[in-house]
Design a protein around this nucleic acid. Structure first.
Lengths: 111, 111
DNA sequence: ATTTAATACCTAGCATTACTAGGTATAATA
DNA sequence: TATTATACCTAGTAATGCTAGGTATTAAAT
């Protein structure tokens, strides 16, 4: 497994919730936005993103709505739910705790 | 899956290599040290630690040596290898890159 | 006009790994 | 004597990022 793949485990949901909480977005757009905002670091694969969105929707954290463009093309826009916002806050707290613990190990001030 | 479990994916190897690179350690000691140094955050399960150590040894990043204590008790002390030290440096670089990318998403200075 | 690339969605199955739950054994403590 | 701590191990499960395949429309390049 490539390093990036492993490190991403556990942070994917937070990234997706964070983006969608700022404004409703559709899958393809999320992939592009994550790559742009991270300056090329995050390159989500479709086989990662779409199942993740479906999981989040099943869990009631986001809500998907089909939108038809001029010409008949379809996009599925995802909206954050109240529950999603609550979970996002909790996940950010967990992320900070995890970071703090990691720093205690890899950047020890004392032994 | 509990949050901690997911966040740990990808960082376990770095934590273990980091500890062992400072001084040779045995499994049980590593579990206790990680908990102590992280002020209770990391509570590695044996089913996580021992397979991880075996993986790292198979990969040539650490080397295990049995040591017999007075009384006949056995401990398996792990030593970092040259390859392990190189991989550790690389993993720390990857960790920093990952952190930077995460911060670009969750703490955006610009859109 | 035709081919290629970009957009836009989807899924089955694989690989990896943290953990549960079980095992064995010795030493120290209650 | 019973319990806890020390010290190691593994088989199987759950979770998830990805590969590799699919469908379809639109835009750009040849």
């Amino acid at each position: 497994m490539v390093p990036r793949r492993k490190l991403m485990k556990g942070s994917t949901d937070s990234l997706l919730l964070h983006l969608i909480s700022r404004q409703p977005m559709y899958g393809y757009q999320i992939i592009k936005e994550l790559e742009r905002k991270s300056r090329g670091y995050f390159k989500f694969k479709e086989g990662t993103l779409y199942p993740a969105l479906h999981r989040l929707e099943r869990a009631g954290l986001i809500l998907g709505k089909w939108q038809t463009l001029a010409g008949g093309r379809q996009r599925r826009y995802y909206y954050i739910t109240n529950k999603g916002n609550q979970i996002l806050v909790a996940k950010m707290d967990q992320w900070r705790d995890f970071l703090a613990a990691m720093n205690l190990i890899i950047e020890p001030l004392s032994t």
